[in-house]
């Protein structure tokens, strides 16, 4: 019996293994066989695992592409969103500035048209904290020559009157307030009747006889008899007329946009607003001006 030394056992094994494989190769070459059977076994063994592995990697890739791979897209999207937000804000800001410019232009135009009438532009800085009253605060006060009961208007029409005056600010009672009122008349018939607020967007014209011919759309102007507002300022237009007892119920839509006031004009005198061909200059809201003495 041939004894293989221990130290040569691995070499012998190597030789045997290599020889076996060389023979296997030789057989394959000789028979042109590709060892199909053993390949089938190997493939059948490994294929289910490969399928599972492939499924796993596809899922992982899907998660990666669908989530982690989108991190940059999300970042870009966030940047674009932020830029879009900035641009939208900028657009709103520009639109606001354009609207403000238009309003200021209207104020200046109004001021220029009545250059001989002392008036002061003011900016609305707050509304009343009391929800039951309709009042605003303006950025003009006693220091600017503002006094109680001065008329407050816009180029569109009457706003209200100065109710309280402080050093640097003043409270203006809007026409829509229940406590508010203005002497008015119907433009067509010159029928007089006070117009006051009822705490609603529409005003009420009182004490107009049922015999008077009043129709919706008629213009309502100040009468000048309240000693606050000059004559012939637009108060509003008749929105609805109902017969009542003993007087008509006339609802008036304010001429001024009382729900979105930003700049107003405080009339420092009751002088009639007659359009003047001489265009004067007046500061924009927030600017300085020299108030004239109120002509009472």
């Amino acid at each position: 019996m041939l004894a293989v030394p221990m130290r040569h056992r691995s070499l012998t094994l190597l030789g045997v293994v290599l020889l076996a494989q060389v023979l296997a190769l030789a057989v394959q070459i000789r028979t042109r066989s590709q060892g199909r059977l053993i390949r089938v076994w190997a493939v059948e063994t490994i294929t289910p695992l490969e399928r599972a592995g492939s499924w796993t990697i596809l899922k992982v890739r899907g998660v990666w592409n669908g989530y982690f791979g989108l991190i940059h897209v999300r970042r870009d999207n966030a940047q674009l969103q932020a830029e879009n937000d900035r641009l939208r804000l900028r657009n709103i800001e520009l639109e606001s500035q354009a609207a403000e410019s238009a309003r200021l232009a209207a104020l200046v135009g109004f001021r220029d048209a009545h250059a001989d009438v002392p008036m002061l532009a003011a900016r609305v800085i707050a509304a009343s904290a009391d929800s039951s009253s309709h009042a605003i605060f303006i950025n003009r006060g006693e220091r600017d020559g503002i006094r109680r009961n001065m008329a407050v208007i816009t180029p569109d029409g009457v706003v209200g009157k100065v109710f309280e005056v402080y050093r640097n600010t003043a409270q203006v009672l809007l026409l829509t307030d229940k406590e508010s009122g203005v002497g008015a008349l119907l433009a067509g018939t010159r029928t007089q009747g006070p117009v006051g607020g009822v705490g609603e967007p529409l005003l009420v014209m009182k004490y107009v006889s049922n015999d008077e011919n009043v129709s919706a759309g008629q213009q309502v102007l100040t009468s000048g008899q309240d000693q606050i507002f000059p004559k012939d300022l637009p108060v509003g237009t008749v929105a609805e007329v109902r017969p009542g007892a003993p007087f008509k119920q006339i609802l008036v839509k304010p001429a001024a946009h009382l729900d979105r006031l930003e700049e107003v004009i405080v009339l420092l005198t009751r002088q009639e607003l007659v359009k003047s061909p001489n265009a004067g200059t007046e500061s924009a809201p927030g600017g300085s001006s020299t108030p004239a003495k109120r002509n009472q």
């Binding site: 293994v17 290599l18 190769l25 394959q28 590709q34 060892g35 076994w41």
Partner: peptide, 20 residues
């Protein structure tokens, strides 16, 4: 050999190389 079986090469090529 497993690598050979799972590939297209003749069975034994990788077997011999990896055996050595």
């Amino acid at each position: 050999l497993a690598q050979d079986c799972l590939g297209r090469s003749a069975i034994g090529l990788y077997g011999i190389a990896k055996t050595l």
